[in-house]
């Protein structure tokens, strides 16, 4: 039993995978048929939450209360940039928008690391600024996506959507970066204990800065894809993904205190949250739930899941401290 628990702790991805299966079964029970397409559809719908959650995971893993609340505004800004630039050239639009995302992350890092403003307040404020750029310049920008790019993004290989493949590729690249490179090690060290990392010779400010930039790039990528999938950029396009992505990041095994991440877990966390949302839609359609019940259940579900996953990590940390003391 304790052996099993050790294994589960080592691979926090187990929880969201189990959760996804469970919710899939619930949907099957409600509709009376096990339709595999539900999974593929949900995986496609989970794209944006997954990309944002992966970015959030990288930022949170740098520890010290780091969090990026400006993600959804970066997403929106980059969506506008991509549709505007793709008007000239699709490649330019793609690259330019993703780079703008990285630049936004760099701004966050500068304010947080060098002006020493807490990450939460920093990203709250920069989020305002990014969104203002959208509000002010939206009227001068193109909002319709490039049709070729839309065809590419909304296409599929067999039952698997191109979006899901993109998430997979990003996931693999991120997994290599986080678990097989020097940077990944340093990031996890900085997240566990910034003082210890500095004393072990890790260039902490650089590592944190890069984490914010990676977070920004992933938000930018999500924005580019969202503009294509949703048929254009609009001002509130990011709003719906905020809480699901934060939830997915924590459910997937990201330690809120930093230093621990799981790419697989976070991707499945996004899938689980999306499946939950689909199951509520199904239930809403079948049982005539009062309006608002959906948000309420979803909210309670997300809080519950956060309480369970975050608390689990914290008690473990406390125990660890005791061992050390």
């Amino acid at each position: 039993m304790s052996d099993l628990m050790v294994k589960v702790r080592r691979y926090p991805a187990v929880w969201p995978i189990l959760g996804s299966v469970l919710i899939f079964l619930v949907i099957g029970a409600m509709t009376g048929s096990m339709d595999g397409n539900v999974l593929f559809t949900s995986a496609r719908l989970a794209t944006f939450a997954a990309l944002l959650a992966l970015g959030q995971m990288v930022v949170v893993t740098s520890g010290d209360g780091a969090i990026d609340l400006s993600q959804i505004y970066i997403l929106t800004l980059c969506a506008y940039v991509s549709t505007t630039l793709m008007d000239f050239n699709p490649v330019l639009g793609f690259v330019g928008a993703v780079l703008i995302g990285g630049l936004c992350g760099l701004v966050n890092a500068f304010v947080n690391v060098y002006l020493k403003v807490p990450a939460m307040v920093t990203t709250l404020a920069t989020g305002y600024i990014f969104f203002t750029i959208v509000l002010v310049s939206a009227s001068h920008m193109k909002v319709l996506p490039h049709s070729g790019f839309v065809r590419f993004v909304t296409g599929s290989v067999g039952p698997v959507s191109v979006q899901t493949i993109i998430v997979g590729v990003v996931g693999i690249a991120l997994a290599v970066l986080l678990y097989r490179t020097r940077y990944g090690r340093q990031l996890h060290a900085v997240g566990q204990n910034r003082t210890a990392a500095t004393l072990a010779g890790v260039p902490t400010p650089t590592v944190v800065t890069r984490a914010f930039v990676i977070g920004g790039v992933l938000s930018g990528l999500a924005g580019v894809l969202a503009a294509a999938v949703m048929g254009g950029a609009f001002q509130d396009m990011g709003l719906a993904y905020f809480l699901p992505s934060v939830a997915a990041a924590f459910v997937g095994g990201t330690a809120a205190s930093g230093g621990r991440s799981s790419v697989v877990g976070v991707i499945f966390g996004a899938l689980m949250v999306t499946l939950m949302s689909s199951s509520l839609s199904t239930a809403e359609g079948m049982y005539q739930l009062p309006s608002g019940a959906r948000q309420l259940v979803m909210g309670a579900f997300l809080v519950g899941v956060l309480v369970l996953s975050v608390a689990g990590v914290q008690t473990r940390r406390r125990k660890t401290r005791k061992v050390l003391a």
Binding site: S291, L296, G299, A300, V307, Q314, R318
Partner: peptide, 30 residues
């Protein structure tokens, strides 16, 4: 109390709680 007793980060709990507030509000006033 929840934030203290389970040593949760307040930011995460209040973020999640907002959807509960929203849900209740929508149930009362769709």
């Amino acid at each position: 109390a929840l934030i203290h007793l389970r040593s949760l980060p307040a930011i995460v709990v209040t973020l999640g709680a907002q959807f509960i507030w929203l849900g209740i509000a929508l149930m009362i006033a769709p």
